[in-house]
Write a protein that binds this DNA or RNA. Structure first.
Lengths: 213, 213
DNA sequence: TAGATTGTTAATCGATTAACAATC
DNA sequence: TAGATTGTTAATCGATTAACAATC
């Protein structure tokens, strides 16, 4: 398990399963979930649920299904969410600010939510020392130090498009290997660095296709 | 063309091509782009670029490539972006506020950007009448009227997860057929309604998988 | 014309679904 | 035990890539 042969399509569904399990775990008297029910709730065929999980081990019992608490634990372990993952954010404009607030709120109200935003960076000296909730905005120049000091492992990029590549280069040099990019630009990074893109404009344009039937 | 047999994978790449063309169109002396170069810039193989475009017509010239301005026009037409597409947003919390500002800014600085945010809704009476830039926050109850009056065609949903499904039901009833959902919930909608999900938490959790090699 | 590049067909690759023996 | 459901293999489906004749 954890071979590189596990496809991105599979990995993308694991957090969805985890969310379904978390919701189910709060339901009175629910101990187990069949691949059928897990799939229905996740929007995935039951055979695919079984196949996805089988890449990592045997977690179910024939005739019964998957024990919720056990599968939760296992999925958290597989996703490296059995420990706290520390996240930084670069570019505290309005989107960065909103995402910061959103992530901080998320960690506070859900103990199980193990990605934690612990540092904010901006290039604008006027913002240094300001706070978003309890988190201080730090100078961009302290990035490398803070990655070490705080043990940052992922960075959220919410800088304007024209600065995104330069920022990405610095992030990569600092040793970070996972970037969540909100800038409307394709980032060029070495193959060992994983970039996930979230681009509102592209999504809106894509949706527009389906308007005129 | 515009048969339902055109796959989502193809449609998802069209706005990326359009963005590459827009950037290329601003470059001195660039008239045409080969599928090779278009592909490189979009992060897609050249054969796939040609195949994607061929679903909709013949837009290139052998030995030359694709004329930038012409392909731009055609892609805008295909994506229904040859006219203004009016968008509403429900839930002006911090994320909704940020996305509103972001979208308004986007429309202002790029004339070619044809999805336009024209209405904000919130359930909280305390926010009614407030403005985000020049846009007033309207009562949720005016949704149906405003969809008609303003000709809204897409809605961005940034309400808390527990309200998202109820809001989606109302949106669907109002006649909207495209939803961009930021709430961390799977929305159940009839098949003629298209939902695009953007879920920061899921993306962070997915990225965490790749951390411990 | 000669070189470049399209549009398209066939081959390959990969992901999903169907089916079912094993077993709880 | 009988019914349910897993884990897994084979079949299917769909998307991408390779190759090349057509042609600018």
């Amino acid at each position: 398990m954890r071979w590189s042969k596990i496809s991105d399509a599979v990995v993308r569904r694991l957090p969805v399963y985890l969310r379904v399990l978390e919701i189910a775990s709060r339901e009175e008297g629910k101990i187990s979930l069949s691949s059928q029910e897990l799939g229905e709730r996740a929007g995935v065929a039951s055979a695919l649920v079984r196949k996805d999980l089988a890449w990592f081990g045997e977690f179910g019992k024939q005739g019964v299904g998957y024990r919720i608490s056990y599968l939760q634990e296992e999925l958290r372990r597989i996703l490296n969410l059995d420990r706290e993952v520390r996240v930084g954010l670069i570019g505290v404009g309005s989107l960065g600010h909103a995402l910061a607030r959103y992530n901080i709120a998320r960690s506070l109200d859900n103990e199980a939510y193990r990605t934690r935003l612990v540092a904010l960076f901006d290039n604008d000296a006027a913002k240094w020392g300001e706070h978003v909730d309890h988190l201080e905005i730090l100078p961009m120049d302290s990035l490398e130090d803070k990655v070490q000091e705080l043990g940052l492992e992922m960075i959220i990029v919410t800088v304007p498009a024209q600065y995104a590549q330069a920022v990405a280069n610095r992030i990569v040099k600092s040793g970070i290997r996972a970037i969540l990019n909100f800038a409307p630009t394709k980032l060029v990074v070495p193959p060992e660095v994983r970039v996930s893109n979230s681009d509102v404009s592209l999504e809106l344009q894509r949706l527009a296709y389906y308007l005129k039937v």
